[in-house]
């Protein structure tokens, strides 16, 4: 059976900060949306929760690229996460959850897996 998903509007373009991230609250919990206007794709969404500390801070990290991969550095202890795959560059066993994200007119939409949605509702 194919899991149901939904594309939720999480914010508008005006809320985004070029070359940086903002945090949004979704039904799957806190998500960090990054806007890197000088690359394609320009939008990335990953969990806002730093897997090393459990604190909601990743949107406040510095973005950039390392060896060609788009990354954000955790503001707490500076580990890097690949924005596309969620993979931590310093520790191959750690990754953050990633979300498909797209621009729909002025709206930024993030795809939330339905299973999570249901469990969040339950």
């Amino acid at each position: 059976m194919k899991a149901r998903t939904s594309w939720d509007v999480v914010c508008t373009v005006d809320d985004l900060v070029p070359e940086s991230g903002v945090a949004v609250w979704t039904e799957d919990g806190p998500v960090a949306v990054f806007y890197l206007p000088h690359r394609l794709p320009a939008l990335f969404a990953v969990s806002h929760t730093d897997p090393f500390t459990g604190k909601n801070v990743l949107a406040r990290g510095i973005t950039g690229d390392l060896k060609g991969q788009p990354v954000v550095a955790s503001p707490l202890y500076k580990q890097h996460f690949n924005l596309q795959t969620g993979q931590c560059l310093e520790d191959e066993e750690v990754a953050v959850k990633t979300y498909p994200v797209l621009l729909d007119g002025n709206n930024v939409r993030v795809e939330i897996p339905a299973t999570n949605k249901e469990s969040a509702v339950a």
Partner: peptide
């Protein structure tokens, strides 16, 4: 606007982040 994304979180928000965010 041009400088915001360059800063460490402490500079971006002009305050030091503590262990609980």
């Amino acid at each position: 606007t041009d400088h915001v994304p360059l800063q460490d979180t402490n500079d971006t928000f002009m305050a030091n982040m503590q262990k609980n965010g």
